[in-house]
Simulated scan of single mutants.
Amino acid sequence: MTHVVAASAERTIDAPADQVYRYLADTQLHSRFLPPPFYDFHVEETGAFRYKIDFAGGVRELRMQVTEPEPGRTLVHADKGGSGLVTTFTVTPRGGQALVDIASRFDGESGVAGFVERIVAPRRLHRVYGKELARLDAYAREQRVG
């Protein structure tokens, strides 16, 4: 039996929400914000990309489909493969800034490996997403200066 594993992080980004959303919606630009353990990022077609992630001692290649259930506010990246990984990016205006929330869920392992995964993966992904949000904020600040 598999279990759903969930992780999230949020941060206020120092830029208007519509601008931040455009940064995230631009798949090629968004790849610049991905920290390790993400690598080997390639856009396959409009609305689809693939990358590798070195996570928990193993490398997985994921093929993601992008949808916009709420254009200008919510982006969803869903794995086309069997992992069940779905990552949602929600951008909420906060005055002249944007609150960005990254939330993921995926089908975890069963048994002892699954128990460990449910404890370790959310913490690790929270840190990784924190780094991604910090990179996004740094980029947004650079654009203001430039």
Score class of each variant (00 low, 15 high):
22 R>H: 06
120 V>T: 11
76 V>K: 10
33 F>D: 00
117 E>R: 06
89 F>H: 10
63 R>H: 09
22 R>P: 04
50 R>N: 15
10 E>Q: 15
145 V>D: 01
63 R>E: 01
50 R>S: 15
115 F>A: 14
133 L>M: 10
135 R>P: 00
62 L>C: 02
8 S>G: 08
121 A>K: 01
116 V>Y: 12
24 L>C: 06
47 G>V: 10
101 D>F: 02
82 G>D: 13
47 G>L: 11
72 G>A: 08
56 A>V: 11
137 D>S: 11
41 F>Q: 04
120 V>G: 06
98 A>C: 02
100 V>G: 03
58 G>V: 12
105 R>D: 09
99 L>K: 11
60 R>Y: 05
24 L>Y: 01
112 V>C: 08
56 A>L: 15
135 R>Y: 11
2 T>I: 05
132 E>M: 15
72 G>E: 07
2 T>A: 14
83 S>T: 15
146 G>R: 13
143 Q>A: 15
88 T>V: 13
95 G>K: 07
78 A>M: 05
31 S>P: 03
26 D>G: 09
25 A>W: 03
111 G>I: 08
30 H>F: 15
6 A>N: 09
79 D>V: 05
23 Y>S: 01
7 A>S: 14
7 A>G: 13
101 D>P: 02
118 R>A: 15
77 H>N: 10
11 R>T: 01
99 L>Q: 06
97 Q>V: 02
83 S>Q: 02
146 G>I: 01
92 T>V: 14
61 E>V: 08
119 I>W: 12
93 P>V: 02
9 A>E: 07
52 K>Y: 06
90 T>V: 13
37 P>M: 08
63 R>S: 03
24 L>H: 04
92 T>Q: 11
114 G>E: 03
56 A>I: 08
146 G>E: 07
90 T>S: 13
63 R>W: 05
75 L>S: 02
16 P>D: 14
47 G>I: 10
14 D>C: 07
15 A>R: 02
96 G>W: 05
69 P>S: 06
45 E>C: 12
32 R>D: 09
